[in-house]
Simulated assay, not measured.
Amino acid sequence: MSDEVGDRATTPLVDEALKKAAVAWVRVPDGPALALWCVPLEGALFVVSGPGEQKAPGLAGATEAEVTIRGDHGGRIVTFPARVSRVEPASELWASVAPAVAGKRLNAPGSATEMVDRWVADGCALSRLEPVGTPLAGAALPDGSLAEPPRDTPAVRRTRKPFRLHRVRRR
């Protein structure tokens, strides 16, 4: 049940999952899966990363990625391979897509136009993730655990209890 258009493959499951996605787990080759805020437009997901935006190491220079979309309760709906392309600020696609992506961003400082201008000035990357090939996982559940060990973090020390001048009595 896939409609092949070039090398872009689409299934009803992927199409519906894309339409409703607000967050996607994106894994570039040799990298961990990262939860990234995204906007579904034109049969693809658009992700903004860079200074002042979300961190997505390796996504701006990648050509392929693995995208997992989860449901409202955290369960995986579908995992599919995606072709990654960077949308350049001088392109026609940027002019039509960047304002739409900026308009969907929650808690945005300033207007959508100001945000798009800041993305250009700061060198942020607007990446397009288009599904290609056959979904890797969908209806079938994995046999084993997909849990990964925790990543290294600078938060390794327990904080001290706050200082109190006097003892508080409870009645």
Rank of each mutant, 00 (worst) to 15 (best):
D3Q: 12
R8N: 08
P12H: 12
A17Y: 07
A17R: 01
W25G: 10
P29F: 01
P32G: 12
P32W: 00
A33G: 09
A35P: 15
W37L: 01
C38E: 06
C38A: 10
P40R: 02
L41F: 07
E42A: 15
G43K: 06
G43E: 12
A44N: 02
A44S: 14
V47Y: 00
V48I: 15
S49I: 00
G50A: 09
P51T: 03
Q54A: 05
Q54S: 08
A56L: 02
P57S: 14
P57Q: 11
G58I: 12
G58M: 02
L59M: 05
A60M: 07
T63L: 14
T63R: 12
A65H: 00
E66Q: 08
V67R: 03
T68G: 14
T68N: 06
I69L: 10
G71S: 12
D72A: 13
G74Q: 02
G74M: 03
G75M: 07
V78Q: 04
V78S: 01
F80T: 04
V84G: 04
P89S: 03
S91V: 15
E92Q: 14
E92P: 04
L93G: 02
L93V: 00
S96D: 14
A98M: 06
A100S: 14
A100Y: 01
A100F: 00
G103H: 07
G103F: 01
N107L: 13
P109W: 12
T113F: 02
T113E: 15
D117L: 02
D117K: 13
V120P: 13
A121E: 12
D122G: 05
D122Y: 00
C124E: 09
C124D: 14
C124M: 07
A125F: 09
L126Q: 03
R128P: 05
L129Y: 06
E130R: 06
L136G: 00
A139W: 10
L141I: 09
L141Y: 04
P142T: 13
D143P: 04
D143R: 09
S145T: 14
L146H: 11
E148G: 11
E148M: 04
D152N: 03
R157V: 14
R158K: 12
T159P: 13
R160W: 07
R164L: 11
L165E: 13
L165D: 13
H166C: 03
H166W: 13
V168I: 08
R170I: 10
